[in-house]
Nucleic acid binder design. Structure first.
Lengths: 342, 342
DNA sequence: GAGAAAATTGGAAACGTTTCCATTTTCTCC
DNA sequence: GGAGAAAATGGAAACGTTTCCAATTTTCTC
């Protein structure tokens, strides 16, 4: 059984092709009579428009591409989920691609998206440093929304973006620990080469700069975000001669590594060691003791990005590139206490 | 700057439109001279084919749709990730949609996919019971691969599927606990109405049937898979007059609920209570004590499904619907011991 | 070297829409 | 009732490909 085309509908309704199209769409300049006949015929034939053909003509595919390093990462998975939800409301499909942080794949994917005439992209480039990816994006000729990344200097005004206030979060966590009396604090965060890491480090430093006494901080950025790697890094930090009394472990895997290291060294949390982590998965909430954590809404990131993109697509492209900065909250649980007396 | 079309390339190379197309594609029936000229012209003009137009003509969009209840669920996220990887190798894009287990959305999504002429679907229908969704899928006219779900009776031969051996896994876990001497075991699993739950229950029962002594088992299926819900359910189970000495908690959230309930009741793991869970996230591995878990390869599910679909798309559709059954392993860790002496 | 077979080529149709334009119909107002 | 404006309509072009067909050129065979 072949699908009915709009031509079949027009014939069945006894009107011309053009009229049928007009009737099925907006309905501008269409008499009530024709509108009804066409609607009836369409229903009777089970007509379903071919989006491909429509896209070809209107030069708009009704699809949006999402490019992240790893969709399986809960961080991105939730963003994708939320974005998809909002886009679906607007009749858009979401195409996903993960790059594994490979610059070549990033560019290939953008080219592929472009070839398919996707209407816009949501992108979290792997490393802020890769200028070529940014150029490819800028040249793509379609609206691009950046997810929690910083465009390179210069290309600043080009991309609207949805950002998370990692700086504020890290600052809040650090201040909180300083307030509890900690003087030696370590920050473990992945990706110093990407915005989240950079911002967190900046926030950490700023909190230190604002502090009265002169605390000492250590900043460690495990290169790979595997748990084993984080474990070694955490072990190294906690075995140092003057070990920190508090650790800010910003990453699920990193938290896992820190917890294991603490267990290995028989450090009790929070008596010997205070911990602040991220609250993106259940792990922090379920652990005994429950881990105090920085939390932000991934869902909000996805939805805001989708919203921003839809705005652009509606032709609102003349407005200055928007930037949404989403807040980070410190959720107090049981993993922090005053540092142990020496 | 407008994009170069194949017509521009043909003109630049001094050949006809048709020849340019032939040269750019397979290259069948094309003289070396023309092939070279066209390739050169294409490169010079930066020609990139318009997939939309091609799709319209060839009636194949080069895109595959994936329909699951919740992409943010790590279970599906990893499958999506793996499938996308394999599909990309084959030049296919992956479109995702999550249904939130809403039958209406399922059907809408399939209709949408169909309207966009997607070449095939990877689907995990929300509830096996919804016959309408299955009919919609069967009527879609495109290859559909089912992810770990059972088609309704009758429609059995219609869909190739990638299945996980939950039955074998549950059986192994139950036997293991029985072997340790446990006689009262509770199984907590979500979704008795879906294949994973059903199979697990069947495996659990079978292990009991095979057992020498006559153990008693309890089967609990929290309706909603929120942690709070699982917590209440676990609490109820563990407070029963003759409480189980072992719990098989098949779900991340459910594990979290069980752990919290154990803590509430001051039951120590594994001395008072043995636990087997699923190993899909880090949580089981990181917990103290580390949780013995059933584990299977989500990546394999995604890749196998993609592979199967690609086979179909290559026109290998005459073969009998394939079924892949992926193994489940029991990973022994520290959360199981012999039951406490009474 | 002639004829047949094979390979290559150009032109045009087709995929299913939307949209432009010219034409016809309907409406409005005097 | 008629002139002019407005609305509705049909026909055709266009979107950028692939593919069919007929025409042409090349290659082969005797």
């Amino acid at each position: 059984m072949v699908r009915a085309t709009i031509r079949d509908v027009a014939e069945a309704a006894g009107v011309s092709l053009g009229s049928a199209s007009r009737a099925l769409n907006g309905g501008r300049n269409v008499s009530a009579r024709v509108a009804q006949d066409v609607a009836q015929a369409a229903k009777r034939l089970g007509y379903q428009p071919d989006f491909l053909a429509r896209s070809l003509r209107t030069r708009s595919s009704g699809m949006v591409g999402c490019l992240v390093s790893d969709i399986a990462n809960p961080l991105y998975a939730e963003i994708v989920q939320a974005a998809e939800g909002r886009l679906r409301e607007a009749g858009c499909l979401l195409v996903v691609a993960s790059t594994g942080n490979d610059p070549k794949r990033e560019q290939d994917a953008v080219a592929e998206f472009r070839g398919r005439r996707l209407d816009g992209f949501l992108v979290a480039p792997g490393s802020d440093a890769n200028a070529k990816t940014w150029r490819t994006l800028a040249d793509s000729g379609t609206p691009v929304i950046i997810l929690d990344r910083d465009p390179p200097a210069g290309g600043d005004g080009l991309f609207p973006s949805v950002l998370v206030d990692h700086r504020g979060g890290a600052m809040a966590a650090t201040r909180y620990l300083l307030g509890l009396g900690h003087r030696r604090i370590a920050l473990l965060t992945p990706g110093a080469r990407m915005r989240p890491g950079r911002e967190r480090i900046a926030g950490f430093r700023q909190a230190f700069a604002d502090a009265e006494a002169s605390p000492t901080g250590a900043i460690v950025c495990p290169q790979e975000s595997s748990m084993d790697f984080a474990y070694s890094a955490a072990l190294a930090v906690l075995e140092a001669s003057s070990r920190p009394t508090a650790v800010i472990a910003l990453g699920t895997r990193i938290l896992a590594g820190v917890l294991r290291a603490a267990r290995t060294l028989k450090l009790s949390v929070p008596d010997d060691l205070s911990i602040v982590s991220v609250g993106d998965t259940d792990i922090a909430a379920v652990h005994t003791p429950a881990i105090t954590a920085l939390r932000w809404s991934l869902e909000e990131v996805g939805r805001a990005a989708a919203e921003m993109l839809l705005q652009r697509l509606k032709g609102d492209g003349t407005a200055a590139p928007a930037r949404a900065l989403l807040p980070v909250d410190l959720v107090l649980r049981e993993s922090c206490a005053s540092p142990p007396k020496i």
